[in-house]
Design a protein around this nucleic acid. Structure first.
Length: 564
DNA sequence: TGCTGCGCACATG
DNA sequence: CATGTGCGCAGCA
């Protein structure tokens, strides 16, 4: 796919996910037709583009294409993510999710192989002690930091361990597992269907979280009937009912049922006796979080935080927990109580359902500490390093993914860059691997002038006449050698040039650079918090943008700088 | 007419 | 039996 197409697909990704969420919310089947419809209505995206982007999302495991009740549905893969453990528990096995031939998975397997190859060459001891996960992550991120994140790779590694492709040693390091001649299939009886439908029903990492039967329909007839169309299944969908659901008799309106509050929708009288009984039973049991379909509270939109049913403002909406049916006002979330924090993708896990991202256990297995940036929750013992300090509710805590090492504060980065002009310091034994060493940091403290902005190679940031005379070729420090010439020097960029740069990666979010009139020098001064909070960006893009900012600031693409 | 909300039957484990 | 899903109906703009 051409670069520009990838960019539009990425942009439409969120819209497609939004469409799926929206359709699921109103209990409509998220099929291609409805998704396209939604995109057209809301974003004027034509059907062809919507379909190709949907396909792109499927190919990239952002959206799952599943068959359910004989028809095709699309699922938000991210929302299936937290069901990993539950699915595994229910299925009672851990090897039913093979790392199969799915394109994205193959790609990851390739990255993994390369990473092992390179790392073992560098450090033959890894053959004996295994390769540390961090090194694998670092290696893969250095190759593709757009598609992968630390967390994502961690999860993929775990999956690979389960599938036998990797072996996790007792010390936590990894070794490549035995190569399988052919990937184990989900079921023994899948062969023909698999051949026909493999591309259409990629059973990759994410789809493994789905019910297996969703992916492998019992309904051969339907599939054959439908196999000629890829995404455009809607025609046959309309003509062929497979679910066999019968039309039910109309309910007689019973005025005595009018005590059920409802904004709109079907009249309360349409409830049948058993439903009413169930509801009455549930009303007496308000303490536990209810399931999506068996929920009196959520059904009527009661916020589980403030317990108010009504919206708190014209724009306030109820956000449903992605595990159960607990809901909360948008405005009630992201407050001081970290357990009520939303994820950057605007999804939410209520305190009952919130799970540790390492062990997937809930707070039942020990109190969870929630990162105030990414909203990931950890048990104190699961987080690396272990959390020893007492973190009170409401106190800000950053997980290791979001922590900003002191060395990475921009002023210190500047000092590091300034230091390249100080041969006496350059000559110190500095670990070139650690881009910002203590020595550099000390140079800042001992040299107030280092606070002047003089990023990148000294040629751009000269500040004293004698240095002006200096020849840039003279900067032979390790840091200068580490500068990646493919990363542009942004020092003298105009706000427009800054905007242009970010537009190619973040066409939507780049506007903020224009609005804020951020020129090259300002860009090089940006701090992490500026990008994450002050620019009013969504956290996901903000983190990615910050990565680029750091890259431009240090002119090096070292994942350590932004992922440590 | 098309979008939305949702009860409840069905699918699945 | 519990839970996820979405059909088909009703209300609404």
């Amino acid at each position: 796919m051409r670069f520009s197409n990838i960019m539009t697909s990425m942009k439409n990704k969120d819209r497609i996910l939004e469409a799926i969420d929206q359709l699921r919310h109103r209990k409509a089947r998220p099929d291609a037709q409805r998704i396209c419809n939604f995109l057209f209505r809301k974003y004027s995206i034509n059907s062809a583009e919507a379909k190709s982007d949907l396909q792109w999302c499927v190919d990239n495991d952002i959206v799952l294409r599943v068959e359910y009740k004989g028809n095709i549905s699309y699922r938000n893969a991210a929302k299936k993510f937290s069901h990993v453990k539950r699915e595994r528990e229910h299925q009672g096995d851990s090897k039913s999710l093979p790392f199969d031939g799915n394109k994205a998975n193959r790609k990851f397997a390739q990255f993994l192989m390369n990473a092992f190859g390179e790392l073992i060459v560098d450090e033959p001891d890894y053959l004996e002690f295994g390769v540390p996960g961090d090194e694998i992550i670092k290696n893969i991120l250095s190759k593709d930091s757009v598609r992968y994140t630390k967390k994502y790779i961690t999860i993929l590694l775990e999956k690979e361990v389960e599938n036998g492709g990797l072996i996790k040693l007792e010390n936590g390091n990894y070794l490549m597992g035995p190569m399988e001649a052919e990937p184990s299939s989900n079921t023994g009886k899948m062969s023909e269907k698999d051949d026909i439908n493999h591309k259409r029903y990629p059973n990759g990492n994410f789809s493994g979280f789905m019910h297996k039967k969703n992916l492998v329909s019992k309904n051969e007839e339907f599939k054959r009937h439908n196999s000629s169309s890829d995404i455009t299944e809607s025609n046959s969908l309309n003509n062929l009912r497979v679910g066999g659901r019968r039309k039910r008799a109309k309910k007689v309106f019973d005025p005595s049922d009018n005590n059920v509050p409802k904004k709109r929708g079907r009249p309360a009288g349409s409830l049948n006796k058993s439903t009413i009984e169930k509801q009455l039973a549930r009303l007496s049991d308000e303490s536990r979080p209810e399931s999506r379909t068996s929920n009196s509270g959520s059904q009527f939109g009661v916020c589980s935080v403030c317990h108010l049913q009504n919206k708190k403002g014209p724009n306030d909406k109820l956000v449903a927990c992605r595990e159960c049916s607990n809901k909360a006002h948008y405005s009630c979330l992201n407050g001081d109580d970290m357990m009520l924090k939303m994820y950057p993708d605007n999804t939410w896990q209520c305190p009952h359902c919130k799970t540790c991202v390492i062990c997937f256990e809930t707070a039942d297995a020990g109190s969870l500490i929630v990162c105030s940036v990414c909203a990931d929750a950890y048990h104190a013992g699961c987080h690396e390093p272990h959390i020893t300090e007492k973190i009170k509710n409401g106190n800000k805590w950053l997980c290791t993914n979001c922590q900003m090492p002191d060395e990475l504060e921009i002023t210190k980065i500047e000092s590091n860059m300034t230091f390249s002009r100080k041969p006496s310091i350059v000559n110190d034994e500095v670990s070139s691997d650690s881009s910002l060493s203590n020595t550099n940091y000390q140079s800042l403290q001992s040299s107030p002038s280092a606070l002047h902005l003089s990023p990148q190679n000294g040629a751009n940031g000269r500040e004293s006449p004698d240095q002006d005379q200096s020849d840039s070729k003279g900067f032979d420090s390790e840091d200068d050698l580490n500068i990646d010439p493919s990363i542009p020097d942004a020092t003298h960029w105009t706000p427009d040039e800054v905007y242009q740069y970010f537009t190619q990666y973040f066409p939507e979010e780049a506007k903020v650079f224009k609005e804020q009139e951020i020129d090259g020098r300002s860009l090089l001064l940006l701090k992490r918090l500026d990008v994450l909070t002050n620019m009013k960006l969504k956290l996901g893009p903000a983190l990615k943008i910050y990565k680029h900012v750091v890259k431009l600031q240090v002119r090096r693409d070292d994942p350590k700088l932004y992922w440590l």
